[in-house]
Write a protein that binds this DNA or RNA. Structure first.
Lengths: 347, 347
DNA sequence: CCAATATACTGAAACGTTACAGATTGCCAA
DNA sequence: TTGGCAATCTGTAACGTTTCAGTATATTGG
């Protein structure tokens, strides 16, 4: 029994996934016509077009990704490049959901491309570009002078960065206004009579470190408060390190009476450190912290919080890359998200 | 000037990505030979094989994924199917990193396939199978009678589940021993003299709900403690709901003196509810909670914790799917992770 | 020394898609 | 009638890979 007698496409019966050939056979048209009809090409008759599209819908035709990709080079893939050590848990989760929300009704798939501490952050990007694995890339942990952004720009690969760069090059980004955040935080603390402030910064090399530090500094002089330097940790440090350093700091005579934290996880450690030093939150010191989910007020209601929406960031970044892929001006695909006001615990 | 004179592959100069044709031209061999040489086929001479592989390495040849996929149907993709509303943040982040760790030095890519509350959980799986978008699938939120597992089994698609099923069908899984967890938790509370215990369960339909409930019930009768029913919430509920219901519960005369929580986020809410009711953790009630990162002891040091490692889960699941794809017996790709002991705060 | 056989290699076809360069038809102006 | 042209439709080739069915050469057994 030679199964090859019944060639695929000669019969329209099978359980095989329908292809253009199947569709062509069913409609009695040529493969080319079917292909063009499905993408609303102008040189296809109105009725034919409708007929093809109807049949395609009926039998659940889905273009074969490999076929399209091989022929056109279009992968229909967006890659999210993540650091496996230093990204915040909430960031990973929320940004992924934000991205998938946007690409849900597009043909795009999301692939996650990780890199670890030991690697050059450029490695995964280089891999993606060299192998042509994605039509667009989203990167985080953006630096003022970011080799990844430069590389992708040079290679003509659409991308969006979480955080801005400062290279005089224009590209899509989404950023949270950390300058405003730090400023608001300082003012909120000043309003509570705090005037010796410390800042737990973002990781030092990243762009938003600068924005945070500048917002902090400018607001300090605006309200006439002073800085208590606390440069031994950033939010990239471990819980234990932050906790220990905070305890050290808070045991000093010149300890701050207000602390600003750039991440919720760090804040847990900061508060623990404060309490290790025998001090009480809200009495001896106030803390303003960014958070990305409503968790800190359950932790200590004395905390002051500012919300950063990572899901929004994911959506914006996805929209930006897709926009660039679709031919929009990169310069028009930049967004900055204003911080919420500084929120105290509300019953 | 007709650029087509210089056909691709006729010259080995270009910046174009090398293909088998490039390699064939450079080595002076046929495309077929090169292809076979690269995969160590037996009918290729030892020297030829070495020569081809050397050249391939030198010029950084990478097989074109679309070509392979079109020809063989192999996608080299693993898909992780996630619920965009109900997965824990830490779960998403850790499991992704666990998976990527394992597939890092394989040709596999990880794609994230989301589905939302409104959708049938079977939808994304059906999509993946119908479009042949992945060689293997990882699902979570596994149910005793899981239509997704059944569907993939019927369609011959390798997969692994986070959590077990109970359909008499054998497939790879990784699970945390929630029966043991609940038992240990009960015993730890009993050891502190607590004997009226409440359980904040996993989501009701999922398999690990049963294991948790059974472990709880068996240990209760073992230590002679009694259950205070608390069926109005599960860890799928919002922080606010859990908090409110817990406060309600704790204001009753027959309130529990011990609570077991299946997730860290829920525990934050439970503690808030306890304190809303004017009670004190560690004095009026003890709480044992699962957590996936060291966060709860910063929150309240009176908490008792059990650690569940989601990164490990991710790695195990990835290993399991890859194993199945590679032809191993599905029954040999099952693993159960024992809970850590119940840990009090240690300085 | 011939045939059989093993060894090492090769071209053609196919996977599903799109782009290119026609082909066919009908209709109208000259 | 004829030539031209617009409107529709079509076959072929190509993307990069693997599989199938060989071919050519060397090696072996009798």
């Amino acid at each position: 029994m030679d199964r090859r007698v019944t060639k695929k496409g000669d019969d329209a019966s099978g359980k095989e996934r329908p292809t253009l050939k199947t569709l062509a056979f069913m409609t009695g048209l040529g493969v080319t016509t079917v292909s063009r009809a499905l993408k609303d090409a102008p040189e296809i008759g109105a009725e034919t077009r409708r007929r093809v599209q109807l049949v395609a819908k009926q039998i659940g035709y889905r273009p074969n990704r490999a076929g399209v990709r091989l022929r056109t080079g279009k992968t229909n893939v967006i890659s999210l490049v993540l650091n496996t050590e230093h990204e915040l848990m909430s960031f990973v989760s929320d940004i992924i959901y934000g991205v998938t929300e946007v690409i849900a009704d597009t043909p795009y798939h999301l692939i996650v491309t990780p890199y670890s501490r030991s690697q050059d952050p450029l490695d995964p990007v280089r891999y993606l570009v060299e192998t042509g694995s994605a039509d667009g890339v989203i990167i985080s942990r953006t630096q003022p002078n970011d080799p990844r952004a430069r590389y992708m720009l040079e290679h003509g690969v659409p991308f969006a960065t979480h955080g801005r760069t400062d290279m005089g090059l224009v590209h899509p980004y989404h950023d949270f206004d950390n300058y405003a955040f730090a400023g608001e935080a300082v003012r909120a603390l000043a309003a509570k009579g705090r005037n010796r402030l410390a800042l737990v910064t973002p990781p030092v090399g990243l762009t938003y470190f600068r924005y945070t530090v500048n917002g902090f500094a400018d607001a300090l002089s605006e309200v006439g408060a002073s800085e208590v330097p606390f440069n031994t940790v950033s939010i990239d440090h471990t819980i234990e390190q932050i906790r220990m350093r905070t305890a050290q700091l808070m045991r000093r005579d010149d300890r701050p009476d207000g602390i600003i934290s750039s991440a919720a996880a760090a804040t847990l450690a900061i508060v623990a450190g404060i309490e290790d030093a025998g001090l009480k939150l809200g009495r001896d010191v106030d803390v303003v912290s960014k958070q990305s989910s409503e968790v800190l007020h359950l932790f200590r209601r004395e905390l002051l919080v500012v919300n950063e929406d990572f899901r929004l960031a994911g959506s914006e970044l996805a929209r930006a890359v897709l926009g660039w892929i679709a031919g929009k001006e990169p310069g028009s695909l930049q967004s900055l998200s204003k911080p919420s006001e500084v929120l105290p615990y509300r019953g």
